[in-house]
């Protein structure tokens, strides 16, 4: 009389254990997916921020090296002259823009071509060096200095240390 009851109990325990294992599997799957998604998101954000800031800084430094003369108009505006053209690089609303003008035309900060997403751009000129600083808005700041040709001659004698 006792045997069928113990069988039923064994079946119930086995069933419950199987279901518990299945539940554990489902929970582990969910946790794993959440962790992987979070890590991927963080890596992607870090990559995007670094790429945008670094690309903007590299673009400006390359332009500075290629131009004949450069002038920092304000903290967010840089005017480059070369090959009979003027190039205005400026930052507005978290985006870096560039606009090319003929040498004799009036410069305006509208209608530029959008280049990169840069939360903040700071340009300062001191002793023939332009300091370019970009911020991604999340604490990531990149700084780099680049020589400009209008700040002195090619050999740097004009530096007043």
């Amino acid at each position: 009389m006792n045997r069928p009851d113990s069988k039923r109990l064994a079946e119930t325990v086995s069933s419950a254990a199987s279901m518990t294992l299945f539940l554990l599997f489902a929970v582990c799957c969910l946790v794993m997916t959440a962790v992987a998604a979070s890590a991927y998101k963080r890596i992607n954000e870090n990559y995007d921020n670094t790429f945008n800031s670094a690309a903007a800084v590299r673009y400006i430094t390359n332009k500075l090296r290629a131009c004949e003369s450069a002038e920092v108009l304000s903290e967010t505006e840089l005017l480059l002259t070369g090959n009979g053209l003027k190039t205005l690089i400026y930052c507005r609303d978290g985006e870096l823009y560039e606009r090319i003008f003929a040498e004799d035309s009036e410069i305006s900060e509208t209608g530029g071509e959008q280049l990169f997403h840069v939360e903040q751009l700071n340009l300062t000129e001191k002793n023939g060096l332009v300091e370019i600083s970009t911020s991604d808005g999340k604490g990531g700041i990149l700084n780099v200095c680049c020589r400009i040709k209008s700040g002195g001659d090619e050999n740097g004698q004009s530096y007043k240390g």
Partner: peptide
């Protein structure tokens, strides 16, 4: 990337000073 920018700044500043 930050180190490469810092090295670039050092090289540019040294070439000026």
């Amino acid at each position: 990337e930050k180190m490469s920018f810092c090295a670039q700044t050092a090289a540019e500043t040294f070439s000026r000073t």
